[in-house]
Design a protein around this nucleic acid. Structure first.
Lengths: 161, 161
DNA sequence: TCGAGATCGATCGGAACATGAACCGTTGAG
DNA sequence: CTCAACGGTTCATGTTCCGATCGATCTCGA
C-alpha cells in the first residue's frame, strides 16, 4: 500500500544530481563554456606540469624563451595577459633555477630580452611532451580535424584584430 | 664605412613588437589559446555586467537561480568549478540584494536550494541581453555556423563524460 | 531503533594571485 | 639639454583560492 503511493509520484522532483544544469541557459553560453573548459584544462595541465616544477604560466614563459623570438618582458606581459609586475616574479623564479636568462636588449637598454639556457630548453622539451599528452587526453572525443578547427576558432577569440 | 657595417646585418633582429609571439609554439597550444580567449572574454563580460552590479560569477549564479532547475549550493559549486565556500559568499551577496533566496530543500534539510526572486529575474533578463550583445561583438569575425560549432566543441572540453 | 560515518553549508585563516602607485634608469623628441 | 614617456622593479592593497573545522542532517548497517 505504502509502496504503491510512493511509486505513484511521477516527477522525481530532482532526478539528476548536477547534470541537469548542463542543459540550462548557461550550457549554451559561450563565455561560460570557456570558463569551464579553461578551468578543467588548466587543472589538468598544472597537474601534468607539476612533475617538472612548472605551472601553466611558467611553462608559457619558458616556451617563449626556448623559442627564438626574444621577447621583452613587456611583450610577454601583453601576450600572456599578465601585469608586467607578475612577469617579474615569474622570470625571477625561472632565472633562479637556471632555466632562463635576462639579457638587456642592446637596442634599448631599458628592456630585458628573455632567452632560455640549454638546461631550460631541455626541461621545456620534457614538459612539452607531458603537455601534449594531456592535451590529447582531453581531446579524446574530438577528431583531428575538429581539433584543428577548434584551435582556429579559439585563435579568433584570443587574437582579435 | 660604419654605416655599411650596420646595414650589412641582415635580420632586423626584432621587427614585430609583440605580434611575432603569436606564431610561436604557444600559438598552436590549445591550452594557451583557451587561457587567453578566456581572459579576454571574461574581461569583456565583466565590463558589460558591471552596469548591473554583477560579475561573471554572480551572473552565472543568478542565471541558474532564474532558471527553474533548483540547484543546491553543492551543485552550483560543482557546475561552476568553484569551491563550495566561495559559493556561500556569492549567494550571500545576491541574497542581501534581494535577487535570490535560499530555501531549505524539503527532501534534504541540510541542503539549500536556490531560487531567484522576481526582482532577480528582471535583473537577469537585462543582464542577459548585455551579455549576449558582448558575445556577438566578440564573435563578429565568426560565421553563425562556426559559432555553433565552437560551442559544441567547447562543450566536449567543458563536460567530459 | 540506534549509532557511526558521510554530507551540506558556513566560517575562518593562510597561501596564491591580481591590481595599481611610486620609483629608477633609459630613451627619444623638441 | 630638458622633459615626457617607457621598461622593469618593488611594495602595499585587495581579491580569490583552498584546506580545516564545525553543527546540523542524512544514510546505512547492526
Amino acid at each position: 500500500m505504502r509502496l504503491a503511493i510512493i511509486v505513484a509520484v511521477p516527477p522525481p522532483e530532482r532526478a539528476r544530481p548536477a547534470d541537469g544544469l548542463r542543459d540550462s541557459v548557461l550550457g549554451r553560453d559561450l563565455s561560460f563554456l570557456l570558463v569551464r573548459a579553461n578551468a578543467l584544462t588548466l587543472a589538468a595541465a598544472n597537474a601534468a606540469l607539476a612533475e617538472h616544477g612548472l605551472k601553466a604560466r611558467s611553462y608559457s614563459v619558458l616556451a617563449l624563451a626556448a623559442d627564438d623570438t626574444r621577447p621583452t618582458q613587456r611583450e610577454l606581459a601583453e601576450f600572456l595577459r599578465l601585469d608586467p609586475s607578475q612577469v617579474v616574479a615569474l622570470i625571477d623564479d625561472l632565472e633562479k633555477r637556471g632555466l632562463v636568462e635576462r639579457r638587456t636588449d642592446p637596442a634599448d637598454r631599458r628592456a630585458n630580452v628573455l632567452v632560455a639556457t640549454d638546461e631550460g630548453r631541455e626541461l621545456f622539451a620534457r614538459a612539452q611532451s607531458s603537455a601534449h599528452a594531456v592535451e590529447l587526453g582531453l581531446l579524446a572525443a574530438v577528431t583531428p580535424e575538429d581539433h584543428a578547427r577548434l584551435a582556429q576558432l579559439l585563435r579568433l577569440l584570443a587574437f582579435p584584430e
